[in-house]
Nucleic acid binder design. Structure first.
Lengths: 181, 181
DNA sequence: ATCCCCATGTAATTTGTTACATGATTGA
DNA sequence: TCAATCATGTAACAAATTACATGGGGAT
């Protein structure tokens, strides 16, 4: 499942512009599937060429024109087929964990910074989940609620683990740390 | 932090061949940082060109020759510098979650398959963590232990969440499900 | 003044994946 | 006899990120 398919899925919930989709990627999809304009706009062009979406241009006063995309019947069919036949993966690429493997080569300040940063990022996500739950989640389909809860569970587990285990890598005798660079 | 740096880090724990590194990627690093031969061998060539590793060719009877790489002083310095200055990310790319967002467009069999598959993958990882903990973890540095525990915590949270919430998306009235394709 | 929001897109670059190419040995 | 393990590497391909390019309106 690539950016193209995710865009198609988003459009199955209602029409939107590329700019709108980016917002959606940043907010509700941000914690598990990132995409920038450089992927979204080409994806929409490809979907249009495939006949999976249709496009209408909207003029706005004092604003740039926007291209509003909506899914077609063919698009809906292709989406369903894709969802029902694919074997979706779940990949983590954590430079953080890779770095932590070599904690003994880092100085304590950097180590602290990294752990602190990760906790703060977790807090940001938790605030986001709170907001989603208190505003738009009520009219979401079950699948999206499941995913939101999943994100929260993983984020909470992350925060808890780091808080409970940071002394495993910090607060060691200074001699174990080597000088940097 | 790219494959090149992770390879360099692995070599800071002791010399190894590209084949050995691949094994390492598959086992202990597999749950958070994937790399295939297509990335590893070019990475080693680049590290050699940079002077960050040295290489010795070993002839073996009845086996292909192996190129054993070891880190140099310059390499160790570069690694430390990289570890102490980088801002490592932690990215999740979950086609699984993206797919689950559109659970209402899937048939129940596919939904069951996906959830089951995810639980099985979690179980595999848990077995891996068990093995690591009972065999090699005792002589690991604190950072690696931290990462292993982190992986276990996330995997357990994953399994728990899916088991406790799968009825959110499954076992719904059949009318909510649309036909596929 | 300056920055952010709106809004679209292309091009270059980076990065990683997959397939290809080779070949002896060992165990089932 | 067949598959797996050991062992290295290249080339083609796919995919996403980053930078570039443009420009008015509104808030501080």
């Amino acid at each position: 499942m690539d950016v193209k398919t995710v865009c198609l899925g988003m459009l199955s919930d209602g029409e939107a512009s590329g700019y709108d989709l980016k917002k959606h990627f940043e907010s509700t999809f941000g914690h598990f599937f990132a995409a920038g304009y450089g992927s979204i706009y080409p994806a929409l062009s490809a979907l249009l060429a495939d006949g999976f979406v249709a496009c209408r241009e909207e003029s706005q006063s004092g604003r740039p024109d926007r291209k509003v995309y909506r899914i077609t019947d063919a698009g809906r069919q292709a989406l369903c087929h894709s969802l029902n036949t694919s074997k979706p993966g779940h990949k983590v690429r954590s430079e953080f964990m890779a770095t932590m493997c070599f904690a003994h080569l880092m100085d304590e300040k950097q180590l602290d910074r990294l752990l602190q940063h990760r906790i703060e990022e977790a807090d940001e996500y938790l605030r986001m989940f709170d907001e989603i739950e208190s505003t738009c989640m009520h009219d979401w389909p079950a699948g999206k609620k499941f995913v939101c809860g999943f994100g929260r569970a993983l984020t909470e587990a992350t925060k808890k683990y780091i808080e409970e285990n940071r002394d495993l890598v910090c607060e060691r005798p200074a001699t174990q740390r080597s000088a940097s660079g």
